[in-house]
Design a binder for these strands. Structure first.
Lengths: 283, 283
DNA sequence: CGGATTTTTGAGAATACTCAAATGGAGTGG
DNA sequence: CCACTCCATTTGAGTATTCTCAAAAATCCG
């Protein structure tokens, strides 16, 4: 199905950008390695192996659970979610892959996909037939190491996720989710401070083990505290340092209690009125 | 350091069990593949590559975070925990590897371990130098596929963990933890119904994202309901089907409310006394 | 045996959830 | 272009699950 076309006369030679042929875009090995930020084998012949691009519209499925596995996908542009469907039919978001991320590794084990990938926006994906992937590792020794490294990185990333899910409060989860997203946008060359969310509150909540209401409330609270600004899906990170180290938000009830005490004192004429010292103590 | 010793005259030839040489136990490739439940290459020379065993005492560290990575470990016997230490020094349990499980994959990516492994009991571990591991993949093509498969399985396992952590109640987490353990004991040839926990309530709680008190209470509740019997670390699974599908326990407060209503009615002489119909309705 | 650790259990508090309603956009068709 | 619908989001009120703190009981280990 994915033949490796010989270079034609009508194909302009580009080594840094994908080119069009037979109605599709194709990338060479060096471009794929660049995308994955792994060193490309110096011995690689530019046009030896070409990888086909495929476009997916927002909302469309890239692979589904149980589907026979034979291809890995690399995100070239756009945003994706991967989900797991539990025994009760509930959708659980596992990751939000974006440019440079690889999809489908979970299918290697049983030769069938264990998860489902759905495009959140229009996407351009590069297809890497698993057979090609394996063969390349044998041809280019450096590549084999890189492949193990990519899979290892995925494992470490999931371990961090597990750690975060079981140890952090809702506020900390949301705060870190935002700073992580920011870092990934940075790495992609976009602003890490100001970006648009491509997923719903529902999907964020599923990813973080929270309800959509909790996500919404937490975003509002972070906004209130001036750590971020939110307007729908438009996010501005205003205090990344605070977001990264956040453990809990100052509890609203503590504020209320202080306020009650203060007003009681004011009523008894023991305190002339509000003062800034108390104001800061409440934050 | 890990030389590959030539077979000596004083070594009895065994292909199915490790043998002693130079004061250590060694296993050949076929034995290692068997342990990992992957097909051994038919072309493998029995004594071509030998893997050294190392013993760890309970409580001892197998590798630590940040340590340079050069070796994978396979559990031959005993029980291990892997942990991650967060920025505040809190310990987060990531997995409980046991016979046939592989450790250290997280170190491949950065060539330094991202997690720490500690023996819960006395352990016998097989050392697989990463270089040997990679070289074997190139020599035996079937092995390369198996290695990718093992890593893929690890990724799928962690995805299931993420899904469980963010979606299930405390009761369901504990129930599944027990049935999972049972299945793993079964695969190891032990009873999957009756076994001893090798970890503390604290460690179980860390693994499941719960406090030790919640774990203890949940075990007591499952015991109360007759789904399991617990006596310290001795577990008997009495109703695995129910444990696997458990979502929530019948809420204790609902029982109390019913009980209150009943006693109120009894007080008013509207109900003669307790009856079995109400008793079942409360469960 | 004694000290340390683990486990159990209780009471109260806090976080996050559920249910509900209102608001606000985005897209569609008249 | 506007009304209409649909979906996402916000916010409130009350509840429930899980956590925290505390104390006692049981077990382990030297």
């Amino acid at each position: 199905m994915l033949s490796q076309p010989k270079r034609n006369a009508d194909v302009v030679s580009h080594t840094d950008t994908p080119w069009r042929q037979q109605g599709s875009l194709w990338s060479n090995l060096r471009q794929v390695c660049e995308l994955l930020t792994i060193p490309a084998p110096v011995t690689a012949d530019e046009e030896d192996t070409l990888f086909q691009h495929v476009r997916y519209k927002a909302g469309h499925r890239i692979h589904r659970i149980g589907q026979a596995f034979d291809t890995l996908y690399i995100v070239n542009s756009g945003f994706v979610k991967t989900i797991h469907i539990d025994e009760f039919g509930n959708e659980q978001v596992l990751s939000f892959p974006m440019k440079g991320d690889i999809l489908g590794i979970d299918g290697i084990h049983k030769q069938h996909h264990a998860s489902e990938a759905i495009a959140l926006t229009d996407c351009d994906m590069i297809l890497v037939p698993y057979k090609t992937f394996a063969a390349l590792g044998r041809i280019h020794v450096e590549l084999e190491q890189a492949m193990f490294s990519v899979m290892s990185r995925e494992i470490v990333r999931e371990q961090m996720m597990i750690s975060m899910l079981s140890a952090l409060s809702a506020e900390a989860k949301v705060a870190r989710f935002l700073t992580n997203l920011g870092e990934r946008f940075s790495q992609m060359g976009y602003s890490g401070r100001s970006f648009n969310l491509r997923m719903t509150r529902q999907e964020i909540g599923s990813y973080l083990g929270l309800t959509l209401e909790t996500v919404s409330r937490t975003l509002s609270a972070l906004n209130e505290l001036g750590m971020i600004s939110v307007e729908q899906r438009e996010i501005n990170l205003l205090d990344t340092a605070a977001l990264k180290t956040l453990r809990r938000l100052p509890p609203a009830k503590a504020k209320i209690k202080v306020a009650e005490k203060v007003s009681a004192l004011v009523n008894k004429n023991l305190l002339p009125q509000w003062n800034s010292e108390l104001s800061t103590a409440m934050n």
